[in-house]
Amino acid sequence: MSDHAHPTPVAHQFDDREQQTEVGRLGMWLFLATEILFFGGLFTAYLVMRWKWPEAFAVANSKMDVTLGAINTAVLLTSSLTMALGVRAAQLGRGKGSFALIIATMVFGLAFLGIKAVEYARKFQEGLFPGPGFVFEGATGRQVETFFSLYFMMTGLHALHMVVGIGILTVIAAMIRRGRFSPDYYAPVEISGLYWHFVDIIWIFLFPLLYLIHPHL
């Protein structure tokens, strides 16, 4: 996106700051629309597979750790709050506060990834990673494997987006540190925030779809 990082000049193709800000904002929203459909392919696959194999999905769900999933949801929701507050601080020109809140957001993001890593490790140990090492007793074993294929693809793609998000926030934090922003110019903070919230929203859907399938369905 157009992180034209200099607080002073407006990039040459624009008439004024306002145009530049709105262009950046729209660019990010359009990118998020693309992202919806990028994840959308996986959600469609999930929809079809769950429709085809409801029992297998319910059985597979019993292997999911709801507690860790719920904690991770809470962590991510909190990170969204700190992100929103960080943008607000940037709007008000409070560099220090904005810096601290962005760092907090990153820390929550890393915590999320840490918990995710623990979950992944356990799944590997239990032989639930699809492929030759997959172990699952029962008639629906192959379809349970399909569930875990989707689980790893969806959460893996989501985690990748988290990593990218943390990378972006690192840059933003450094820019705040160098005093690049002001109440007139904070668009990169806001636009990065949009991305962060989007990644949060993806998780808001992944959590019930992957962790909360009711066993009696």
């Binding site: 729209l26 929203w29 359009l30 998020l32 629309a33 693309t34 992202e35 919806i36 459909l37 959308g40 392919g41 959600f43 469609t44």
Partner: peptide
């Protein structure tokens, strides 16, 4: 833009 992506996902 925000609703466009969701609408298209609904089509899919």
């Amino acid at each position: 833009f925000a609703s466009g992506g969701i609408l298209w996902l609904a089509i899919l």
